[in-house]
């Protein structure tokens, strides 16, 4: 997910009996669904893991502006242009809410930005895939936002107060994103031969990268266990991936599109689809920087940051001058 591959820094899950009184009180609050607030005592591992997870989520939102922003100037109608712009703007907003949530843990937005640009912090692998045609904008909304929502809805109940409140706000705004994506896909799927081909091609290219968004199977991961005990991860990667496939396949059928998986079949016993795993080698390659547009994405963020330095400094300098003039006058 947006927080794929975030490793918690805990060393395996301790039982309540093994904990010092402070940590025990903390864990009991988490267990009782009482939110942890910024000034409450928290284990250092919890704080560090949260910074990484919320930071990665925030970075994913703002890097995620780029593939869709790529089509704002080429959207086919005025209405589509406005919808897409409003949507990508929402993503900037979501990034902002999340950075603010992370800031309550004692890290600044600038520090997190530097960590993104230096490669110390990651963003979701999905945004290292290009948007080549207009149908990709539909596919991103439908599949990528669909997968994101699947992860974000449960995170509204996450244990850390500011994170949970940011997720509530994000989920409220996000619901239009997936719908507008599907709406684009419907128009394409019901359109000309060329549009149908475009829609199918977009599904072909985005299907497996979307499945990768949930991260590799975490059945035996110590890190996942700790994150789940802390309630900063609510469901397992496989659980969410299954849910996503079960929800998405009928939607693809409705569009008359074919999910690019020959092995896809309904499994009556488990009440869900059997489906092919994505190519995890590709996933790790993309995460390491070998995706088709990794370089472009980071370069765009770096350019915005570097080119914007004089603006941030200029406006701050003016504000400080005004402040001292006011003080002098008083």
């Amino acid at each position: 997910m947006y927080a794929q591959m975030v490793k918690s820094t805990g060393k395996g899950v301790k039982t309540l009996d093994e904990m010092e009184p402070e940590e025990r009180a903390f864990q009991e609050k988490v267990d009782a669904d009482i939110r942890i607030e910024p000034r409450d005592w928290m284990p250092e591992g919890y704080r560090k893991t949260l910074i990484r997870q919320i930071g990665q989520h925030a970075h994913s939102e703002i890097v995620g502006q780029l593939p869709e922003g790529n089509w704002i100037t080429r959207a086919p109608t005025l209405e589509r242009k406005m919808i897409l712009l409003a949507k990508v703007q929402d993503e900037a907003g979501h990034g902002l809410y999340l950075y603010c949530a992370a800031e309550t843990l004692g890290v600044s937005r600038d520090e997190m930005t530097e960590m993104l640009l230096s490669g110390k912090m990651k963003y979701s692998s999905i945004f290292n895939y290009p948007t080549l045609t207009w149908a990709d904008i539909g596919a991103v909304g439908w599949l990528v936002d669909g997968a994101a929502i699947m992860n974000q809805v449960p995170l509204q109940r996450t244990s850390y107060g500011p994170y949970s409140r940011a997720m509530v706000r994000i989920c409220k705004e996000e619901s239009f994103h997936q719908r507008q994506g599907y709406d684009i896909m419907m128009k394409m799927a019901q359109g000309s031969e060329a549009q149908k081909r475009m829609a199918q091609d977009a599904l072909n290219r985005f299907w497996y990268p979307s499945l990768m968004m949930f991260g590799p199977s975490d059945a035996n991961s110590v890190h996942s266990e700790q994150s789940m005990a802390w309630k900063i991860k609510i469901n397992s990667n496989d659980e969410l991936r299954q849910k996503f496939v079960d929800q998405t396949v009928p939607q693809a059928e409705y569009l008359g599109l074919t999910v690019p998986d020959d092995t896809l079949a309904w499994n009556e016993d488990k009440g869900g689809y059997d489906f092919a795993e994505p190519d995890w080698d590709e996933f790790f390659d993309v995460l390491k920087g070998a995706g088709p547009v990794n370089h472009d994405r980071l370069e765009a963020r770096r350019k915005a940051w570097d080119d914007g330095a004089w603006v941030r400094e200029g406006l701050l300098a003016h504000a400080e001058k005004k402040r001292s003039a006011k003080v002098a006058a008083e």
Binding site: L96, Y97, C100, R169, L315, A319, K322, R323
Partner: peptide, 12 residues
């Protein structure tokens, strides 16, 4: 309270 943000001064 709805959230936070950064700005150089109160007006902004």
């Amino acid at each position: 309270h709805v959230g936070s943000l950064h700005a150089p001064d109160a007006e902004t």
